[in-house]
Amino acid sequence: MFIKPILRYQAREYSRPFISFFLVYSFIIGLIVLSQRLSPQDSSGNVNFVEIGSVILVFVCGIVSFRESFKFLSQNGITRKQFFVARLCSMALLSVVTSLFDLGLVAIGRIILPSAEDISLSKIFDTAYTPFWNGGNTLIRSAVYFLLLILGHLLFISLGFVIGIAYYRMNRIVKIIVSIGVPLLLFYGLPILDFVFLNGVIFRTLGNILIAAFGFSLPVPNPFIAILSLFGSTIVFFGLAWAMVRRVPVKE
């Protein structure tokens, strides 16, 4: 289906933001190491949700994954289907790379700050699912954890992708209304509605759904339920994205 050159182009699109991101993180780690060297006694600081950076990165990458890429590839006779299939592949690739980056980051964090309190996301999930594994095979356990990470990243990419396509399809007026209206609704309207009139039902339900989705509601939290939920919602977002891309005109 002639995907290779498209995939190559799209991977190239991601390489620039990823490299900048990588350099910034390396710089920060360098600073931490340096400050340790200068005052060896002081090992304060935490390995604190370090993975959040790559989640933001992939979300932003998802948002900018459509417009320019779609226009350029359309100019070169690439169909929507080819574009979309290659995009799925390039997004999967990005998730793998950023997941590896996260693993590396946590590992480095634990080495350079051995005595610091480790509350990285990995640690949290690791601790939560420990009863499930009950010893077990560490290799499978690490593989499942890695898969969980990849799917988590993919979910945020797909969410960003849907937003990016939706923005492309909107005309200017709708774009302005949505840009102001949706955050307003999300950060003011919904909380006010929830806490003033509904006694917090909405947020409580959302929280419960999230807990259930990650398998935390079970007596023994199950990581495979989390994998299933992440995979399922990613599929839903990509399905939505395809529905929006399938007949979208190339805007000039």
Partner: peptide
């Protein structure tokens, strides 16, 4: 429409620029 084999036989120079900003 949407046929890769057919579309690869065509190149269209359009009036509008569809190239990325930094290219």
């Amino acid at each position: 429409p949407e046929n890769p084999e057919a579309q690869r036989k065509i190149f269209m120079m359009s009036e509008k620029n569809l190239y990325p900003t930094s290219m």
